[in-house]
Simulated assay, not measured.
Amino acid sequence: MADTDTNQDPRVLVVDDEKEVADAYALRLRGECTVDTAYGGQEAFSVIENRPVDILLLDRHMPDVSGDEVLTRLAERGFEGRVVMVTAIDPEFDVLELPFDDYLCKPIDREDVRSVVDQQRQILAYETLGKYFGAKSTQTVLTAQTSPEQRENHEQFEAVRERATRLERRAQRLLDDDTLLAKFESVDRDGR
């Protein structure tokens, strides 16, 4: 689940065992984001393992691996994206145990698909920005207060540096306006 490619659009994965439905949602999102489709739960895992996913549109009722099982496994793996259930199953109290971020009952029109993806993109952008600010401020203060020799082989420092870089790339991809990143960089954190 690494963030390694240079595409600058939010990344959405549409998962539905009905190919026509998944393709229709993907078509509705064309031009708004980078969209992949998976036609079952197992295929969804393959996509997520090979490419970063910001927003997952997930059907609940699928024959190979249910959407509920996909959610459970992703939570166990530490999936850092947002999950929207898009399903014909009317919610009951069992949804209280599911780690999703939004729930849409089919059929869904074009504007609702686009709107929910944009809402989840904005939420994820600010969540990511908060994590980035924390990691980057730690990196900045340690860089100012320690010598290059001290930092050179320090595994935890390197991990913070890599995390800050990864989070910055993701925040830039998700934000409509990255002036918040510039404002953060303008603050003098080391008092020098």
Results as ranks from 00 to 15, higher is better:
90 D>P: 02
59 D>A: 03
92 E>D: 15
125 A>T: 01
136 K>Y: 04
36 D>T: 09
71 L>F: 10
138 T>V: 12
32 E>D: 15
73 R>N: 11
72 T>V: 13
73 R>P: 02
86 V>M: 04
52 P>M: 07
143 T>G: 03
125 A>W: 00
119 Q>L: 06
93 F>R: 15
72 T>M: 10
91 P>M: 07
59 D>E: 08
47 V>K: 12
123 I>Q: 03
95 V>R: 06
104 L>Y: 02
62 M>E: 06
143 T>M: 07
87 T>E: 09
82 R>D: 00
68 D>W: 10
20 E>F: 10
100 F>I: 07
36 D>N: 12
59 D>Y: 05
128 T>P: 04
59 D>R: 08
106 K>V: 08
86 V>Y: 04
47 V>T: 14
29 L>D: 12
74 L>Q: 07
42 Q>L: 12
60 R>F: 12
26 A>C: 12
62 M>P: 04
98 L>F: 00
44 A>S: 13
44 A>L: 11
58 L>C: 09
46 S>R: 13
76 E>A: 12
53 V>W: 00
142 L>H: 08
49 E>G: 15
112 D>S: 08
130 G>E: 07
100 F>L: 11
134 G>M: 08
119 Q>N: 08
99 P>S: 02
35 V>Y: 11
31 G>R: 01
41 G>L: 02
109 D>T: 10
141 V>I: 13
121 R>T: 14
143 T>P: 03
35 V>G: 10
137 S>V: 01
127 E>S: 07
140 T>Q: 10
91 P>R: 11
44 A>E: 09
55 I>E: 00
115 S>G: 08
142 L>S: 05
37 T>P: 06
54 D>H: 08
142 L>C: 08
40 G>W: 03
129 L>C: 02
71 L>Y: 02
57 L>R: 03
69 E>M: 12
109 D>L: 09
141 V>P: 01
42 Q>W: 05
92 E>I: 10
123 I>T: 13
53 V>N: 03
87 T>K: 11
88 A>E: 14
135 A>G: 12
109 D>G: 13
141 V>N: 01
87 T>G: 09
23 D>S: 09
51 R>I: 03
101 D>V: 04
72 T>C: 06
118 D>S: 11
65 V>F: 07
66 S>E: 05
50 N>P: 01
110 R>H: 14
50 N>G: 12
23 D>Q: 13
56 L>M: 03
79 F>N: 02
106 K>G: 10
27 L>R: 13
122 Q>E: 13
133 F>P: 00
109 D>W: 10
105 C>A: 09
103 Y>G: 00
104 L>P: 00
37 T>Q: 04
88 A>P: 11
141 V>T: 15
137 S>K: 04
71 L>M: 14
134 G>K: 06
117 V>N: 04
103 Y>T: 00
91 P>Y: 05
103 Y>F: 03
82 R>V: 00
118 D>E: 13
26 A>I: 10
22 A>Y: 08
76 E>C: 11
32 E>Q: 15
53 V>I: 15
71 L>P: 02
57 L>G: 07
26 A>D: 10
114 R>S: 14
52 P>A: 09
105 C>Q: 13
118 D>I: 03
88 A>V: 13
60 R>Y: 13
40 G>N: 06
